[in-house]
Amino acid sequence: MKDPYQVLGVPETATDEEIKKAYRDLARKYHPDNYHDNPLADLAQEKMKDINAAYEQITRERGGRGSGNGSYGGSYGAGGTAYQRQQYSSQSSSGSSVLQQVRLAINSGNLSRAEALLANYADHNAEWNFLKGAVCYRRGWMDEAKRYYQTACQLDPGNAEYRSALDFMENAGQTAYRPNGGTFGTEFCGGNPCLTLCCLYTLCNGGGYFFCC
């Protein structure tokens, strides 16, 4: 059994408020929404379980003082309820059994099989584009993933699943976890006064410039 205080990263002397704050920050970090379709989502889910168990244990030990009062309800994303959302349902909207098999292959992490099935499927409908995007995303081919999601949304504008996948890609700046509430995004960061400082240790050669000149 892990020490619940250690899991939440707070001392045993922490106040209820401090514990709640630490819990909320960790829950935000490891929330299934932050690991949507992420190849490491299972590890995040484990973390989330530990955090929820630790928070529940502490609040129980402290006589329930911290629970329920505006907290995340103690089981934030626990037990896989929220996680379910990122598993593709085996019901595909097109009803094609091949595309259902693609969903199953993606869910089980067998991307090569999913790709092979998609390659042999002639009807490039909205579902096909969406699943193609999902395979690209899991491979880390973010540009192509987004373009397939876009096509899926164009072909079936009313589909909430396709729309949410595209929104996730387009709004990383708003949805991504960042420590201390800073901004997240290349176009959102301020100037770069530090870049000159970064050459402080350029000693033996051109630093990073060795290969590019």
Partner: peptide
């Protein structure tokens, strides 16, 4: 920038 951000 969006695709870079997604890798980050």
């Amino acid at each position: 920038a969006e695709t870079l951000d997604h890798s980050i």
